[in-house]
């Protein structure tokens, strides 16, 4: 089956935040008690009860004002640090491309939350007792595997969110970037190449950093060194140790006997 993707076009987003509520409704997430924080943004951050949050930014340049609205949620990376580091297989690559999450399997280690280049997964529960679970956008796996589109996309009135086959979304995104270039020379399709391709792509009018996104997101070096070198090395070392000890046992037993000890 073709991989799926969400295309977010902030130039069409009106920040109604229907996506935030639709997400909470579909996933049955509770409201976060909060206060006005001197802006239209709320709740304060992603949390176990908030998988999507819209960010608002007032950008003033050349005497004109822009109000940028940026989606903050799981990017569903192809090279996903969370999947790399997840020890229990709770996080995995779904055949449809997104990062599938099986909450039952989660041990609560929090590696996903600490290694994500976008700081997306959040932990519920206590880090003191260690009893906790990760949480993040599920790509509405229960919907998309049943031929429904994700709740956030479904609710988006100005069609700033679109959903479809990844290659289709890529085409749409590139087309949209081309249209935007006239007005926004920095227009850029974020997620085409980043981390091997994101399954949530953004049509950005400005440079990613202006929208609060990392310019060049990568797997943290620690992930590569740890998962790519140390862990395999560990297996080899432990294996060699056991092998060596076994060998020693065989050799030593024969020799000690033939010595006619005693």
């Amino acid at each position: 089956m073709a991989e799926k993707a969400i295309l977010f076009d902030p130039t069409k987003c009106t920040a109604c935040r229907g996506c935030q509520v639709a997400c909470k409704q579909w996933n049955e997430l509770e409201a976060v008690p909060t206060v006005n924080l001197g802006s239209y943004e709320n709740p304060p951050d992603l949390s176990p009860n908030t998988y999507i949050k819209m960010r608002f930014k007032e950008l003033e340049y050349d005497k004109s004002l822009e109000w940028l609205f940026t989606r903050r949620s799981c990017m569903h990376c192809t090279n996903a640090a969370c999947v790399e580091v997840c020890p229990t297989g709770a996080l995995s690559h779904h055949p449809l491309g997104f990062i599938d999450y099986n909450e039952d399997l989660c041990s609560g280690c929090g590696y996903c939350s600490q290694f994500c280049p976008f700081q997306v997964p959040r932990m519920s529960g206590s880090s003191i007792t260690g009893i906790r679970k990760a949480s993040k956008c599920l790509f509405c796996a229960d919907r998309v595997t049943n031929n429904l589109i994700p709740a956030c996309v479904k609710t988006c009135p100005p069609h700033a969110l679109q959903f479809g086959d990844q290659d289709q979304m890529l085409l749409l995104g590139r087309q949209r970037v081309k249209e935007l270039k006239a007005k926004y020379p920095d227009a850029y399709l974020y997620g085409e190449d980043e981390l091997g391709g994101l399954h949530v792509m953004y049509v950005l009018p400005h440079k990613p950093t202006v929208h609060g996104l990392p310019a060049d997101p990568r797997l943290p070096a620690s992930t590569t060194v740890w998962q790519g070198i140390l862990q395999p090395a560990g297996y080899v070392l432990a294996g060699l140790t056991v092998l060596g000890l076994g060998l020693n046992y065989l050799v030593a037993r024969a020799n000690v006997k033939s010595h006619g000890k005693g």
Binding site: P87, T88, S107, G108, C109, G125, I131, K133, G234
Partner: peptide, 22 residues
Amino acid sequence: IFLYVPWIGAVAQDSWTRVIHR
């Protein structure tokens, strides 16, 4: 070790290993 060996990782679900580890 459950954090190290993926094919037994599932045993660690629901954090009981983490409580004991502590």
